[in-house]
Computed example of a mutant assay.
Amino acid sequence: MLKTAIGKSHAKIIFFGEHSVVYGQPAICLPISKIQTKVTITKTNAPQTIQSRYFDGKLIDMPNNETGIQLLIKTILTELHQENVSFNIKIQSEIPSERGMGSSAATAVALIRALFHFFEQPLSHSELLRLADVSEQYIHGNPSGLDAATVSAKAPIWFIRGRRLQTVPITKNAFLVIADTGILGQTGLAVQHVKSQLASSTSAETAIERLGENAKSARECLTTGNFKKLGTLMNNSQNLLAKLGVSHPTLDLFAQLAITNGALGAKLTGGGMGGCLIALTQDKKTAQQVADILIKNGAVNTWIEPLKSPDHKGAQ
Rank of each mutant, 00 (worst) to 15 (best):
K34A: 15
A108E: 10
Q256H: 00
V300S: 09
Q289F: 00
E98M: 07
I91L: 15
K172D: 07
I112V: 15
R99L: 01
T286V: 10
C276L: 06
A242M: 06
T37N: 15
A155W: 01
M234P: 02
R99A: 13
A153V: 11
S124I: 08
G265A: 08
I73S: 10
K8L: 15
V85A: 14
W303V: 13
I278L: 13
A263H: 02
I41P: 03
D147R: 03
G162S: 12
L71F: 07
N173W: 00
G275F: 02
L294K: 08
N45Y: 11
A46N: 14
N236S: 14
G212R: 06
L244E: 02
K3A: 13
G102A: 12
K12D: 09
V191L: 06
K3D: 15
L77Y: 09
I89H: 06
Q282W: 00
V151L: 12
T224C: 03
L77I: 13
A190V: 03
K229L: 13
P31Q: 06
H312G: 04
S52H: 10
I32A: 08
Q197M: 14
K243E: 14
P63K: 14
A174C: 08
R164L: 12
L230K: 06
V21Q: 03
I14L: 15
A155P: 00
K216C: 09
A242C: 04
E120V: 09
G212A: 10
P26G: 11
P169F: 05
G314I: 07
G141A: 10
G7V: 11
K154E: 13
N88S: 15
L240R: 06
Q137T: 14
Q192D: 07
A46Y: 10
L30S: 04
G298C: 05
T78I: 13
I112D: 05
L146H: 03
L294M: 02
A218Y: 05
M1D: 09
S20P: 01
W303G: 06
T260R: 06
V22T: 05
A279D: 05
L240D: 04
C276M: 05
L280K: 04
I91S: 09
